[in-house]
Amino acid sequence: MKKVLTILLCGMLLVLTSCVSEEVFENTRTGNVEALWKIIDEHYCFLPYKKQTLGVDWNEVRGRYVNYEVERMDRYELFDHCAAMLAELKDGHVNLYSAADIGRNWSWRDDYPKNLDVEVREKYLGTDYKIAGSLKYRILERERPDDNGDVVKDSVGYVVCESFSSGIGDASINEIFYHFIDCKGVILDIRGNGGGDLDNCECLTSHFLAQRTLVGYSSFKTGKGWNDFSPKREEWITPPDYVCWLRPVVVLTNRGCYSAANSFVRNMKALPHVITLGDKTGGGGGMPFSSELPCGWSVRFSACPEYDIFGRVTEHGIEPDIYCSLDEEKAKEGEDSMIETAKMLIK
């Protein structure tokens, strides 16, 4: 009987000690702030980079935000307090979501010139532009001096890509390039594109490739430590079976290019026939993951960093090949100086 009891007790002990479970913070004000701090501490991928570039020390942040004062806050104050803690990271992919608000730091875009006048851009598109998938496009006529100094008339294709959230599709891109078959080059205007689906970004990139091309690297966290990262993994994109555009391309960028649009610029900069023109992109070079707090608020954070072909982090944006700003005076007259510069860059 003693043997049976011993076996049973050992069995129960085995079961009890083998429970796979992670500690959950209590749903109190302090518990929620603690939980939020810990999620970022263990999962956010740019803590060493933010410390190096912005001087943000996440351990020091804890001292300022995880304290007894939070117990006196109502839930709206608590939300603002948590959002302020996250805003220290100055990362557009770091957000706090409640039913009432979205905590954010959009300084990557708001602190810089827009370099985009949507009304002027619409004038370039006119009213008879074509729409393929989520892309708007038309042919722009131009006059330019040739090598002999004579004025020649020709055309360039103009494509506006406002977001990568909606599907694009190979068939749509094929049709666009067939439409541009007599054009000298293409202007790809992604100003204000806040990102979306990486598959759409890759799909569009692939139509500018002559061969399978290395466009950058990515990695991910392999543990809870700030520097626990996988080796950088090469990111290759393969051209599609049908239409590939190998004539000159100018990509127009501004600070509003974020996330998947930032990735698109990174990809396009790896191609020899592409020039990026405009302002530095907004960044967002970390694929975001989600988690949640005991009170039910959702938190989003950068989890997987991406790098350009030189191995540089793209979180704080990508420099254009040629800096160019929107001339506000000309914009008032209906001229987009960035589009005009791009038109002249295409030989």
């Binding site: 991910f220 392999t222 543990g223 993994r233 997987c304």
Partner: peptide, 27 residues
């Protein structure tokens, strides 16, 4: 892997994702 996305797995395969299973990985 800890912070690995399924997008990454789809692009780079399941290296590092297949592990031995025993009592130490869960009863």
């Amino acid at each position: 892997q800890y912070g690995q996305s399924y997008y990454d797995i789809s692009q780079n395969g399941v290296g590092g994702c297949i592990l031995p299973m025993w009592f130490g990985t869960g009863f």
